[in-house]
Design a protein around this nucleic acid. Structure first.
Length: 677
RNA sequence: UGCGGGGUGGAGCAGUGGUAGCUCGUUGGGCUCAUAACCCAAAGGUCGGGGGUUCGAAUCCUCCCUCCGCUACCA
């Protein structure tokens, strides 16, 4: 793409039903912020838009659960998240929301244009309807008995017990989780975007014209396109969202995935009356920053919508990141396994840049990555403090000691000085190359090399020694070191905006022009600097321990207090119960079933006979450890072939909330074959 | 079981055909301006294993082992 006149940067709209955590920041907002700041510093025309995604079923259910309106839910998280972004210096030009008036108009117009152009197809289908609550039910809000395993708490889309994927019609005895009533099937009309129609040009546009996209993005698009695309519904039966702007479409709203990306357009409209320049001019370069869960929407569906509308440009790149784990475990809002931005700032006030740095340095750019507090501490102590902070500190202290804060006049430079000064420009170029190819980890490392260069220069030149013999020479040395420092304030600015602002204050300049980076006269001789402080401070072990203990407490809470027992099953007669023959037995032999991860083949003595049982406990018990253990079994269960082995019965296991299995063993050893009743 | 992504010095990673590299850690030295920070040097790798292609393979092909995610088996 040549002739780029302006940039439009979008960052995934966070869903307004929870706070923002480090995973969001590392994957989307830190990279987008670095990129935006860099472009702005170059003096380019760039706007960065974001906002809250506030529609969809989960928000209505959360509202119902808390007894408030959906609007109250989204108001709460919109404000919280807006503030969190602002606190971390994420430099959006606007943080809008999809419940706003402009968005309603924009989304309606967009839909209406496609509708009038005949871009949608219509289809009537039967869906479950909750008569008591007066609403249609999304699959996962219907529960019933799983036809495969008999689990009575299976969801309409999947049984979590046996893992089978289901459709609501498969469920025995379905009931609504909203009102508890029995839903009925009802006909409903919806509009569909025929993605299959766009397949040919999508294939060309992505697979041929955008081979430069990141491997994870390109690969996922390719797999979608290879599988073939299908029409997707763009409307839903719901009372929370943008109403479908068509006669007789009462009670129908735009499906949230259709509505949300249009939020980028509405946000731009709110920001500037010139919004069309950014969305409809071929000389605008649009870049979407997202997480990997959003690839299909931003690379396939939204471009299809834009293409169908006809007057919009398409994204130039979609640098999606993978996911961030926390201390070796998936980040999870419901399990409270996360570092929340607002909590981080309470524990580490003023240390926004430290988190920004740690997250950028180990951002999940090419594969899922792990955030650990130990790594966070090491990044701070060994890199920010020891390399960057230390260089700045030694330079400024020496300048204070020798020249009372006045920049010395340089004399003749040595070839060594010249090489170092030239290196500044090279580092600047390297950072640019990395940033423009969305390699933020590399860019950051390269920026830090400038501080490394500075430390090495001081160590090589030893001004504290030379000052005793050749004070004139020291003036040149310190001038060079100061020019490096001034360059740091520009080159590190996109990554560490808070610290660099502080540093600019100390050296008393206000230069934010990226193009000036590489200059060796940013600080003119005679310029007076202010009294410096410490740019970063060490983080002690105790602070890290406090954080890991906090997480440990969360784990514990998840294990015990949070575990609510599932409701009891329907009553049975004593007769029913006595049909089950439960006995004690002893394990004689145990071995892993080859090519499986969970199965053990056990030979057990039931008192009646010696038989084989296959059991899914291999993840919790080593074969060698359980030989000789007494257990409980269901003795009269129909035999069943598992992995080709006849399994005669079933071992009783207690299963906790995480699915961990524990053997049910008599409190004292009793004879094999004793009845349990 | 299927699909996808990994396996490179103690740890974390880069490197897709031509002398194996970075950060941290370790050891030794230097410096003492600096938040015990900084600088230099050294030790440490048969690049998961076998086979193949090639003048030449961490890099290409093939088989296998192993780890992670999803998936399956777990009455």
């Amino acid at each position: 793409m040549n002739n780029i006149k302006r940039y439009l940067v979008t960052s995934a709209l966070p869903y307004a039903n929870g706070p923002i955590h480090i995973g969001h920041l590392a994957g989307v907002y830190v990279p987008s912020d670095i990129y935006t700041r860099y472009l702005r510093m170059k003096g380019l025309d760039v706007i960065s838009v974001c906002g809250s995604d506030e529609h969809g079923v989960p928000i209505t259910l959360k509202a119902r659960k808390e007894g408030v309106t959906p609007q109250e839910i989204v108001d709460r998280y919109h404000e919280l998240n807006k503030k969190a972004f602002a606190d971390f210096g994420i430099a959006f030009d606007i943080y809008s929301r999809t419940s706003g008036k402009v968005h309603y108009e924009t989304a309606s117009e967009f839909f209406r244009k496609l509708y009038d152009d005949g871009e949608f197809t219509e289809k009537t289908s039967e869906q479950y309807y909750d008569e008591e609550a007066g609403c249609f039910l999304a699959d996962r809000y219907i529960m019933g008995t799983c036809p495969h395993c008999g689990n009575e708490n299976a969801y309409g889309d999947q049984c979590e017990k046996c893992g089978t994927s289901l459709s609501p019609n498969d469920l025995i005895n379905p009931h609504s989780t909203v009102s508890g009533s029995k839903p009925v099937l009802r006909e409903t009309l919806h509009w569909y975007l025929p993605l299959d129609k766009y397949e040919p040009w999508l294939k060309k546009w992505i697979l041929e014209d955008h081979k430069e996209w990141k491997a994870n993005v390109y690969g996922q698009c390719k797999s979608w396109l290879d599988q073939g695309l299908h029409p997707r519904a763009v409307s839903r039966d719901l009372d929370w969202g943008v109403p479908v702007p068509v006669e007789g479409a009462n009670g129908k709203v735009l499906y949230v995935w259709f509505d949300a990306p249009i939020g980028y357009i509405s946000a731009t409209k709110e920001l500037t009356p010139d919004w069309e320049k950014y969305w409809k001019d071929e000389e605008t370069k649009m870049v979407h920053f997202i997480g990997k869960d959003n690839i299909v929407f931003h690379c396939i569906i939204f471009p299809s919508m834009l293409k169908a509308e006809g007057s919009f440009i398409l994204p130039e790149n979609v640098p999606a990141n993978e996911f961030l784990n926390l201390e070796n475990d998936k980040i999870s809002t419901s399990r409270n396994w996360a570092v929340w931005l607002h909590e981080y700032l309470e524990d580490f006030p003023g240390k926004q840049d430290v988190l920004r740095y740690a997250l950028c340095a180990s951002a999940p750019e090419t594969k899922d990555n792990d955030f650990t507090w130990k790594d966070f501490q090491a990044r701070n102590n060994n890199e920010l403090v020891a390399i960057l902070g230390n260089f700045v500190n030694r330079t400024l202290i020496l300048t204070g000691n020798y020249y009372e804060g006045k920049i010395p006049e340089p004399g003749t430079t040595t070839p060594g000085d010249d090489a170092v000064l030239k290196e500044i420009g090279k580092i600047k170029d390297n950072v640019e190359t990395s940033l423009e190819s969305y390699r933020f980890r590399e860019a950051l490392k390269e920026a830090m090399n400038l501080a490394r260069l500075g430390n090495k220069y001081l160590a090589d030149e030893e001004p504290w020694k030379v000052v005793k013999t050749d004070p004139e020479r020291v003036k040149t040395i310190m001038n060079v070191a100061l020019q490096i420092t001034a360059n740091l304030t520009i080159i590190c600015e996109p990554f560490l905006p808070f610290s660099m602002e502080k540093l600019r204050g100390w050296i008393n300049i206000n230069e934010l022009d990226w193009n000036k980076a590489g200059s060796t006269v940013l600080l003119p001789a005679g310029h007076v600097i202010n009294k410096p402080g410490l740019l970063f401070e060490k983080i002690e072990d105790e602070e890290i321990t406090r954080q890991t203990e906090k997480l440990l407490a969360t784990k514990k809470a998840n294990d015990t207090a949070g575990s609510k027992a599932t409701p009891s099953k329907d009553p049975i007669t004593f007769d029913d119960f006595s049909k089950i023959d439960i006995r004690t037995a002893t394990i004689l032999e145990a071995e892993k079933v080859p090519k499986t991860t969970k199965l053990l083949k056990l030979k057990i003595d039931t008192g009646i006979d010696v038989r084989t049982i296959v059991s899914g406990i291999a993840e919790y018990y080593e074969p060698a450890d359980i030989i000789g253990r007494q257990i409980s079994i269901v003795a009269n269960l129909e035999p069943r072939k598992i992995k080709g082995i006849d399994s005669q019965g079933m071992i009783l296991m207690a299963e906790d909330r995480d699915g961990k299995l524990v053997m049910v063993t008599p409190a004292q050893n009793v004879g094999n074959g004793s009845m349990i009743k």
